[in-house]
Write a protein that binds this DNA or RNA. Sequence first.
DNA 1: TGATATATGCAACAATGTTTCATTTGGTTA
DNA 2: TAACCAAATGAAACATTGTTGCATATATCA
Lengths: 152, 152
Amino acid sequence: MPQSKKINPEEILKHHELKATPQRIEVLSTFLKRNQVMSLAELNKMLGKEFDRITLYRTLNTFEEHGLIHKIPDSNGNINYALCKHESLDHSHNDNHIHFQCTSCNLTVCLEELEIPIIRIPKKFNPVKYIFLIEGICEDCDGKVKKHKGLV
Amino acid sequence: MPQSKKINPEEILKHHELKATPQRIEVLSTFLKRNQVMSLAELNKMLGKEFDRITLYRTLNTFEEHGLIHKIPDSNGNINYALCKHESLDHSHNDNHIHFQCTSCNLTVCLEELEIPIIRIPKKFNPVKYIFLIEGICEDCDGKVKKHKGLV
DNA sequence: TGATATATGCAACAATGTTTCATTTGGTTA
DNA sequence: TAACCAAATGAAACATTGTTGCATATATCA
């Protein structure tokens, strides 16, 4: 049995000053269950087609505004969603890390330990938010390619 | 009169081993005319509604594959397009710079002089492409806000 | 000029974003 | 506990964009 403290979706929602509706609890539970980055399509799939898509759309916006999740856009214009770490029960907003996405299998991960470096930009641009995505090939896909080419 | 050397869309296309069709010439000319980042909507607007949107879709893909333009995704999943500098007549592919986008007016600019810093990531992730976008407020919008608040 | 590989334009469909509005409901207060 | 109300939900409706298949048109080259 994992020694994680009991994480209660209702508590988290209330802590973020959000009404604990069944729909929000369901969405948040889905994030907690799959502790990884999810695309909208994956979310839709996990929630089932009975779940109203407009409600999901608004729920995601609300969660983002309140710092429960952050968006990870990729170069195709697809948006992935991830729980903000340390967000389960406190308010600190930390999505200021680098993300990696495999262009082959679309695996997307938060590299929590890698903060985005601060860059000086011309002073006529007032920075607020930094987005740093590294696209490439993950270990698994790399392995498959090499295997396929007879290199392993 | 600007002292720019004559830039011929047809030459550029042929240089990139692309057939110089009227549609491609029109799209490329639009990029050359407005020497700035454009969204799909802006492109559509400038080309006029007679221009077939599927042709534009494919033209943009082709241009990107051949290194004439690069895509700049933002956190809303919108993709902006920009000519690759120094791309007009040679092959070097240089979209490895930081971008800035104003969240108020959507102005998007290439900070050509700012290269994306190389970051060490866990070796199970094989990096290929780096995307670094800074979102914030541009000078103009900042000015408007301050004016509106009576701070200036 | 003729051949041909490629590009275009159209149809068709899917996914997603976004707003409006009537209805429902969680949280709070009397 | 009951009632109230601000907020959330769900349905409809519409727009934008991505994407593929296929018949036709055409840029390029021999």
